[in-house]
Design a protein around this nucleic acid. Sequence first.
DNA 1: GCATGCACGCAAAACGATGTGGAAACGGAT
DNA 2: ATCCGTTTCCACATCGTTTTGCGTGCATGC
Lengths: 341, 341
Amino acid sequence: MTQKSGIAAVAETAGVSVSTVSQVLSGNRPVSDATRARVNAAIAELGYTPHPGARSLRSRRTESIALLVPDITNPFYPLVAVGMQDVLLPAGYLLSILDAGSQSGTGRLLGHVLERRFDGIALHIDGLSDADRARLADSGTRVVALGRDIGIEGSDYVESDDAGGFAKLGEHLLATGRRRIGFIGGEAESDPSRLRLGGLRQAFAAAGTEFADAATVFTSFTRDGGRDGVEALYARRDDWDAIVCANDLIAIGAMDELRRRGLSIPDDVAVSGYDDIDAAALVHPSLTTVENPAREIGRTAARLLLTRLAGDGDDAPTQHITLSTRLVVRDSTTSPIPQER
Amino acid sequence: MTQKSGIAAVAETAGVSVSTVSQVLSGNRPVSDATRARVNAAIAELGYTPHPGARSLRSRRTESIALLVPDITNPFYPLVAVGMQDVLLPAGYLLSILDAGSQSGTGRLLGHVLERRFDGIALHIDGLSDADRARLADSGTRVVALGRDIGIEGSDYVESDDAGGFAKLGEHLLATGRRRIGFIGGEAESDPSRLRLGGLRQAFAAAGTEFADAATVFTSFTRDGGRDGVEALYARRDDWDAIVCANDLIAIGAMDELRRRGLSIPDDVAVSGYDDIDAAALVHPSLTTVENPAREIGRTAARLLLTRLAGDGDDAPTQHITLSTRLVVRDSTTSPIPQER
DNA sequence: GCATGCACGCAAAACGATGTGGAAACGGAT
DNA sequence: ATCCGTTTCCACATCGTTTTGCGTGCATGC
């Protein structure tokens, strides 16, 4: 008893060759029904599982995909993950969610991720350094970007219509008489923050309304960021009548801080967010926000990756998909000031 | 130009043998400083990354660990993940978060996970079927269970002192005069639900107080579960003065449904949760709950796994760590009924 | 000057799969 | 019976590492 292991053991108990077992497994070549049955019986009997290392060594594929997010405790990202999994699992891929811990943690984690040779990587990262971009590009790994273009040759991306959503938000603020608007963005000058602010400006421009130029501060996409943002804004002036935040977590943090300062929401100042995470409907007052179709973003990204992985070609042109967003008006912006002209 | 790839290419440009390169990489054998320097230079020049498949093929290790959770959109789990990552990343392990989608999704995902041959698996799963338990056990993979014992030989587990937390909660309810208490648990008869309920009963027993035997219903650990739970409870009787929920999501769902029925919280009925997720402080009224040290659970679990993986022995006895919990009293249980005796 | 011991490197054998070129077996047509 | 085309299976090379067991060359102790 030579105690073979792996596929060799299966081959032995089935009384066939190693390659035949492999054929049965992969279906790459036809195998007679009788042999196939014997092989399958042997596999079941031994409880055999192919070794993924050996397999990927030959096939250069791992059948697994990574989702790299800046902060898994932001409830937006788990939804994206679930969306991706909706599509990937049925296709036989395993999705690994990797948490960079923060925007700046990306670089550290990227090394680990590339080493693992995932077949594809979905990135929801705002500030990608040039060095990291280069590492990604010549790793040859398929990349799909979420939320913004990542600037890598041949990598598709899917985003939400941030500008459109904020334009609708702008109209709404306008209609309720808000004029002195502060904006709290996420990590330094990140594209999403700018895009969102742009939509807002555009709405005011379209209405030809005078617009006390939105003061903007950049912090981080967290509750703490929201608190800091409010402090920074009120250090400049204290007559804001609306504070627009680049995501819901910031908005919730901002509300904490505004309340601490004795301001009433929405009577003194309106607050709005972005994403429409569950908590947006739970806070008091409930938060006006723009719905960001997280799960659909995940699904779409996964489909883009699968398409690229299947037709293993760089042939197809880069795809860029924009999902529409929806304004969700709640209490944090509604009640006041229908006057002024 | 034979165009070697991988370690062989590195060996060639450094002018050493393949094994020497491997030695430099792993540090398993001493290498002279001069050679080490040349090898490292070659590695940098070629941008070489070891192939993880080939590596794991020989070494039988993947340096990656999986965390399997029932529902990644429950904010409790991302915190656990972050805690694990705190410990694992510095140790050179990559953590993959895998979402089973639901308690029942576990089995489906488990196959995928075992195929991938992670070095270790952290499981936060309540109802593990016997078949799955068997698969896990004879996969030989190191397993650490979170929240409860998983019943696998040699697998450690870390849990929170659920019963203790609920005992404190019980005293609190008692002190505020609550007597007719309903309990909404998670997935059918799951251990955590029972444990938590047990702590509650114990507190009442200790006080020698008459206790309208807690009616219990089991649904799922989600907001929807909370709504269903309230419906089920009120189908039995309608004079509850407190509803204790097995986690915060259930509690939040329950509050939605109670409010829909025109009941006032906490005046008509008190509501409590478990976990102390962010949302617990955000809902209105803010939710009394028991703090579950998610991040610390993650850290502890990771340490247990690492210990097992390092001293590759089944020698050490099974470890069982209980983390203490803390009652967090907020508005959802406080105001009313300090009378009666 | 000769055995002895160290420090370094190397060659070669795994590890467990995939996949290609052929060989054997089998029929059907001539 | 011979020939030819299919079908079905196998041997073998290959993927990129890790890991032993051995050579070297050099300083050391006598």
